[in-house]
């Protein structure tokens, strides 16, 4: 893809910008509904970046599970909020300050990690092998990995999902209580 045209480069950077703008917007926009939509935009951008990384499968998963599943869940969750528009209650100033501090520190760490990574790569070990479809490539595919060396984590992930589902039901369901007890 070195020979990729300006169009492709532009598209790539558009993806990056969408991700960045979506994330910043989702984090800062006062209207909660807008924030969720912006989050969806950002997640879609990430899916695009996955495509550039030859991770078509992950991109699909990102779209289907994240944008299609998780995001919808969160959208439902906004119904709980009394103040979706964010017009009544603003975050207190000290909370924003704390957030900025934490964000600054996180930015420091991220920069540091990125620098480290870039230095290692520029020392020139490997670049992407072109023209090889990752999914059908010479190495093992994701499915083989998941059922091979990653089997135990894979099973754990399954258990995690099951437990999460049961836990969610247990949390939400109203259990019959003794008659005198107050219903929470």
């Amino acid at each position: 893809m070195i020979a990729a045209g300006v169009f492709e480069l532009g598209l790539f950077w558009t993806c990056c910008l969408v991700v960045i703008a979506g994330a910043l917007g989702a984090a800062t926009v006062r209207n909660l509904f807008h924030a969720v939509l912006l989050l969806g935009l950002s997640l879609t951008g990430v899916a695009g970046l996955y495509l550039y990384l030859d991770a078509a499968y992950l991109a699909c998963v990102q779209i289907v599970v994240y944008v299609g599943g998780v995001l919808v869940l969160i959208l439902f969750a906004t119904l709980f909020s009394a103040d979706v528009m964010g017009s009544v209650q603003r975050a207190p100033r000290w909370l924003v300050a704390t957030g900025l501090l934490a964000a600054a520190i996180a930015a420091g760490v991220a920069t540091r990690i990125a620098q480290d990574a870039l230095r290692t790569v520029s020392r020139g070990t490997a670049g992407p092998a072109h023209g090889v479809d990752a999914i059908g490539g010479p190495g093992p595919g994701i499915g083989e990995l998941l059922l091979g060396p990653w089997l135990v984590p894979f099973l754990c992930a399954g258990v995690l999902l099951t437990v999460a589902l049961i836990g969610a039901v247990a949390t939400v369901k109203r259990f019959r209580r003794s008659p005198g007890a107050r219903h929470g």
Partner: peptide, 16 residues
């Protein structure tokens, strides 16, 4: 928020 901030800062410190 404060909890998350503290957790984030602590994790960062460890990472550093």
């Amino acid at each position: 928020g404060v909890y998350v901030a503290v957790a984030a800062i602590a994790v960062t410190a460890v990472l550093f």
